[in-house]
Design a binder for these strands. Structure first.
Lengths: 226, 226
DNA sequence: GCACAAACGGAAGAGGTCGACCGTTTAGCG
DNA sequence: CGCTAAACGGTCGACCTCTTCCGTTTGTGC
C-alpha cells in the first residue's frame, strides 16, 4: 500500500485514508524522498538505493518497505516535478501570445531538466505507466498541440514545425546536460536559443521530415549510456 | 596509426616487431573487434564482455588476453571510426566554401553517431587518453576553429557562433538517438537542420553566453543514463 | 504503564559482470 | 613428424546491487 504511485504527503497532511500510519513511518518516507531527490539531482538516477537509505539515515529494508521497487522510488521522488511540467503547459495555454507561451513552457521544462539531472532522466525514461500519469501526459500532449497550432496561426511559428520537435528538443536538452548544474544551465540556454531561432517562419529552407518521435517515446526509450 | 595501445594487425601485416604472433591469435583478435562493433552498434557499449566473446566464438579469457580491460576493447573497436571523424575535418578544410565544408563535416559525424550508437557513446565518453589520440583531437579542434573563422569571414556563419557549439551539437545529437538506427537518423537529420538554420547570421537576436564546453568535455563527461 | 502490532535495522541470498587462473589444445618450425 | 611455447576455453573468486528475512525496537491506544 505504500505508494499508490506516491500518496503525496503535501496533498493531505491530516488524512487517514484506509488505516493508521505511524508517525515515524511517515517521517522516514519523507526523508527517503528528500534523500532520493538530493542524490538523484547530484548524480543521476543510477545511484545505488543503499546510498539513498544511508543518506536518509534509515536501513535498506525501510526503503524497500516504502518503495517496493527502485522505480517506484524514482517515480515518487519526481511526482511533484512531473506535475509542474504538466501545469506548465496549462499555464502556457493561458498566455495571450501563443508563441510566447510555448517558449516560456519549453524554457521552464528545459530549465528543470538542467537543474536536476535526476529529474531529467526520470522525466525522459523512467516514469511509470500508472493510468493517472498516462492521462496527465495525454492532456499535456493535446495542450501542446493546440499551442503549436495557435502559434502557427499567428504566423510566429514556422508551418513545418512538428509536435515531435518538442520531443526532439527535450531529448537533445537532456543530452547536453553536464555534471555541474551551472554548466548544464548554460548549455541548455544556448541550445534553446538556437532552437527558438530556427522556429521562426523563415520560408527559404524547409526542414527535412520530422523525426518519428512522439511524446510517449520520451518515456519508453531506454536512455542508454551507450 | 589508429591504435598504438593495441598493436593493430592491419598496420603492418609483415612486421615482426618483437616476436611472432600466431595466425589464430590475429584471427581471433579481428573477430573480437568485429563482434564488439556489431554488438555495440546494436545495443550500446554496455553489453557484457561475455556476450562479445560468445558472439566472436571465443572464450572470455581470450577476449581478456587481447584486451586487458573493457575500455581497451571499446577503444580499439572504434579506433577506425574515430580516425574517420578526424579525417572529416581535414577534408572540410579543403572545401572552397568553408560553410559548406563545416556543414558537411558535421553532417558526417552526426550521421556516424546515428548509425552506430556504440560509436556515439564511445566517441563522446570512452576514448582513452593515449597521447596520440590526444594529439589527433587537438589537431581536429584547431582545424574546426579555423573552419569556423573562415565561415564567419565569408559572412555565412553568425559572428557569435562559438566553437563550443560544435560540442553542444554533438552532445545534443547523441541525446536524440533512438533504438533503431532509422529513427536515429531521422531525428539527427531534423536536429541538424534546425541547428544549421540558426547558424546563419541573422542579426536580430543574439545568442546567450556560450556553454562552457570544450571538445575535451566530450571525452571526459560521464554520459550518465540519469 | 502495558501490550500489541507496526516499523525498524542489519545481515543474508540471488543475480550478474569483471577480471584471473590453469590444464589442454594447436600453430609454427626444424 | 614431433616438439615447444603461444594461445585457447572453462571455471572460479571478488565485487556490487537489488531484494528479502528475522529478531528487535518503538509508537499508539487502552
Amino acid at each position: 500500500m505504500p505508494d499508490r504511485l506516491s500518496r503525496n504527503p503535501s496533498t493531505s497532511p491530516a488524512d487517514t485514508p484506509t488505516r493508521r500510519q505511524r508517525a515515524d513511518a511517515r517521517n522516514n518516507r519523507a526523508r527517503l524522498l528528500q534523500a532520493a531527490r538530493d542524490a538523484y539531482a547530484l548524480d543521476g538516477t543510477d545511484v545505488p538505493s543503499s546510498a539513498i537509505a544511508r543518506r536518509a539515515g534509515v536501513g535498506a529494508a525501510t526503503l524497500y518497505r516504502h518503495f517496493p521497487t527502485r522505480d517506484s522510488l524514482i517515480a515518487a521522488a519526481f511526482a511533484e516535478q512531473f506535475g509542474q511540467c504538466i501545469a506548465t503547459v496549462d499555464e502556457a495555454l493561458k498566455d495571450d501570445d501563443p508563441w510566447r507561451g510555448l517558449r516560456t513552457a519549453l524554457t521552464k521544462v528545459c530549465r528543470m531538466q538542467a537543474e536536476d539531472r535526476g529529474f531529467s532522466a526520470a522525466f525522459l525514461a523512467e516514469f511509470p505507466d500508472a493510468p493517472e500519469v498516462r492521462r496527465e501526459r495525454a492532456r499535456a500532449e493535446s495542450g501542446l498541440a493546440r499551442l503549436i497550432q495557435r502559434a502557427k496561426d499567428t504566423g510566429q511559428l514556422r508551418k513545418d514545425f512538428d509536435s515531435s520537435d518538442i520531443t526532439l528538443l527535450l531529448l537533445a536538452n537532456n543530452g547536453v546536460l553536464q555534471d555541474s548544474p551551472a554548466a548544464s544551465m548554460a548549455a541548455s540556454r544556448r541550445l534553446l536559443a538556437y532552437f527558438f531561432q530556427s522556429c521562426r517562419p523563415t520560408d527559404d529552407t524547409p526542414l527535412p521530415e520530422p523525426a518519428p518521435l512522439r511524446l510517449d517515446d520520451l518515456y519508453r526509450a531506454p536512455r542508454r549510456t551507450g
